[in-house]
Design a binder for these strands. Structure first.
Lengths: 308, 308
DNA sequence: AGTGCGGTATGCGAAGTGGGCATGGCGGCC
DNA sequence: GGCCGCCATGCCCACTTCGCATACCGCACT
């Protein structure tokens, strides 16, 4: 905390306070007492204000005090509105630290939205209902780029085998979980019931893949094991993909994060760790950028959601 | 005019301009060039602002310039709104002098509203459509009191025989016109056709008066001439009063200002000046108070309306 | 009428504010 | 690896602005 922050120092908007105080009390002397100043200071302050505004008097000096002129009356509502605005500004700024306001902009890759992200959002909302959360979906590289551009405060990203694209120095990675890989099998498939399988045991299967090319998809793993999976169907959407698998048209790889949302007539079998080194899921923040105060608590919510 | 008023001196809202400039350009150096300052000045200015706001950084210092933090983003709209507000404030203030805006608050006694005031308003509006005119009706003493309280900028008042109630030193009187007195006669009245009459010639008439007592009404004149007019009907409203006269129920006094709005079946005859020294109509302003700029032109409009 | 009492304006001196100048540090880029 | 661009900071100086004391003015009361 900053030392000795009792009274917020005026943002050099002294003239506003002085003008309003004088308007309210109709007297330089009383306003001065109210402000803890001397009468002369107030007198000068108003004089300067009048000079700065074109030399037109804002107050008529009467024997019994002062009174607003037409120009002063014109000024008054604006002065009031301005101090009000500055007050709400300070309040909003404080709300940002209180976690009673403000916005946290984060992004996540698609499968993180299956269970991890919604749970984290729910937990965070329950604790800090005032904070606005904005979410966007995207692939890891894009999310990191937006993080670097300052368009995101936090990105939930995944890396295959630990290598993240882009300059790893630019981001601060908060480890969330290591994600095992499963293979989704149609009902009655011979491998059903196994505790785990090797990828090579699946070399002869028909595959249902999200993209025509293996690059960037989970099937990239298969390539490292020396076989080119036979992609029988290209289906991008997750629900549709499950339909193809359930109908026995092929098998597909499923990351652990999506495991929960698999329809009951599909069997998941763990893929051996040695075959597919687990993807690691991180929450990334931009290094060297001051994170919004909500980032910490949201990270906690993510961890809690992952543990659940 | 104030000497050498080229660039309006910032109302010590420097930090607003600096903050916005830096936000726009994303660089202290560029902002400094833009402001005609040095980079160090901008750096310090932002530093002070951050310190004043609780020590939270508003910008992240990056190798390629600066970028708003969450706190800075929160500040931004308020800063923009505030400078906008201050701009409109200045514009309104200028409009007051331009006579393209602002308000002129005046009051007038009832008969002045018959022709003088409406004409003046029309003429003034035609020339300065932006100025808002607020009018209130009242008797001279009340109008002067409100003038003194600062609730009116100008009052159209009348005096019988030159004596104005209250402290005459406190008001500045702008002579508008000397108002002759007429007597309203029913059709066929014997005095019809005379160029003028003495009040004493009307001593035996039935009178229609606005009030039960002569004090404060035009009939006060009659008292000075030693007769108590026989008030046959007390009728406050002007149109009603005319009806009574037209029906032959009595005569009544009519000030010149109301002469134009008399129904055609009523005859007006001038009352001798010596009998009834003309009421004088003034536009009064409070002495020692700076009058709104619109007062001058409105006075001209009043004079023009009176001449017409 | 004189005097005292509130109220504002102003000369003067001192402290604080804030910008310029020069320099240092740090990170990309050729 | 050296150069360049950008921000931070120590130092200095000028201007701002406050407090203090005093002048001035109008009103009210004696």
């Amino acid at each position: 905390m900053t030392p000795s922050r009792t009274a917020p120092p005026d943002l050099s908007t002294v003239w506003l306070r002085v003008f309003l105080d004088v308007s309210r009390h109709g007297s330089f002397t009383v306003a001065a007492r109210d402000l803890g100043w001397t009468q002369s200071a107030v007198s000068r302050q108003i004089s300067s204000l009048e000079a700065a505004l074109g030399g037109v008097p804002l107050f008529d000096r009467l024997p019994r005090g002062v009174r607003l002129t037409a120009h002063g009356r014109t000024l008054l509502p604006h002065a009031e509105a301005t101090v009000a605005r500055l007050h709400t500004m300070r309040r909003e700024l404080a709300a940002l630290d209180d976690l009673t306001g403000g916005t946290l902009r984060f992004g996540a890759f698609a499968t993180a939205d299956a269970a991890l992200v919604p749970r984290a959002i729910a937990a965070f909302r329950a604790r800090h209902p005032g904070v606005t959360l904005t979410r966007e979906e995207g692939l890891t590289p894009r999310l990191l780029a937006r993080l670097g551009d300052g368009d995101l405060d936090l990105a939930i990203v995944s890396s295959t085998g630990g290598a993240l694209s882009g300059d790893v120095e630019a981001y601060e990675l908060h480890h969330l979980l290591d994600e095992a890989l499963y293979v989704a099998l149609p009902p009655g498939h011979p491998l059903t019931g196994r505790a785990s399988v090797h990828l090579t045991q699946l070399a002869d299967e028909d595959w249902v893949s999200g993209g025509a090319h293996a690059e960037g998809t989970l099937l990239e793993e298969a390539h490292r094991h020396g076989f080119r999976p036979r992609v029988a169907h290209v289906v991008a959407e997750w629900t549709a993909k499950q339909g193809y698998v359930a109908a026995g048209l092929g098998v597909t790889l499923v990351p652990a994060l999506a495991a929960e949302s698999v329809r009951p007539d599909i069997t998941l079998v763990r893929v051996h760790d040695e075959d597919a080194p687990p993807r690691t899921v991180y929450a990334a923040t931009a290094r060297g950028r001051t994170a919004p105060p909500a980032v910490g608590p949201f990270l906690e919510a993510l961890r809690a959601a992952q543990a659940a």
